[in-house]
Design a protein around this nucleic acid. Sequence first.
DNA 1: GTTGATGTTGAACTTACTTCA
DNA 2: GGTGAAGTAAGTTCAACATCA
Length: 279
Amino acid sequence: MELGLSLGDASKSPVLLKENNSPNQNQNQSKTSGLDFCMSLGLTSNNQERGKAQENDDVSASDDSQEETPLQLNLLPLAPLPRQISSSHNGSSKNGSSAAKGFDVNRTPAAEEASSSNSRREFEANDDDGLNARKKLRLSKEQSAFLEESFKEHSTLNPKQKLALAKQLNLRARQVEVWFQNRRARTKLKQTEVDCEYLKKCCETLTLENRILQKELQDLRALKTSNPFHAATTLTMCPSCERVASASTSASAAKVIPFPLARPRFYPFPTHPNQPAAS
DNA sequence: GTTGATGTTGAACTTACTTCA
DNA sequence: GGTGAAGTAAGTTCAACATCA
């Protein structure tokens, strides 16, 4: 089951809930319009096996075997790494990049030789003896910045672009591919947060408007009961303030001018962050 | 200053799905 | 139409850090 919420056009129904059996429909929508918003609910199996991950490591390693391998396995004794090693490279960066943290496992072995202080980390990061099968590595500031620039140009890569980027950044094609996948996910998440904020504001606006309408209805009912002999009442809408006004009439039949289907809003919806300001 | 608990970030992974040859 | 490869989204895992008591 999937709940979809469409956003972006205040002239249309602000929130649309519908069942959608095709998950990709929403994906395509969000590609064509920056204002779309969707939420998915679902069950996924969570029986991932570490053994499979190991298998996958092997596969990806063989997949990338044709590519340039930027790393070299240093055979140093395995020992716990003191915290100070990373801290000493840390500087003042907050959540800093690997460059600021002095942790760039993607440097060429030659470059790595130049800084022997990192050799322990390098060893740990490159350890693929099976005991430390999944070591996380951070891309350098420069690598991240370059990928970011590429992402601004195109959020998806064709194989040629992927290979070129990988070569340029001294990364594996798989790393570039994963980076773009994660980057797209982050973008979408951020957009969802923005859309949620927008929906919240819309909700507040509607609540306020609803309260006003309720009050108005209450007043009209009170007016009707207080003037039972003036049942023949014409309800008209003031063209300037768009508020309903009642007027006694001598007409024999009650005449009610219905609200337009799309009643003008007392308080317009807030502008969506992605929407250009209305002229 | 050190340490352990806890939260955050992001790289890498798995799974399910679609598209296309 | 069935099939396998390739690509992607969504969700998850986990190492590396940051923060704080």
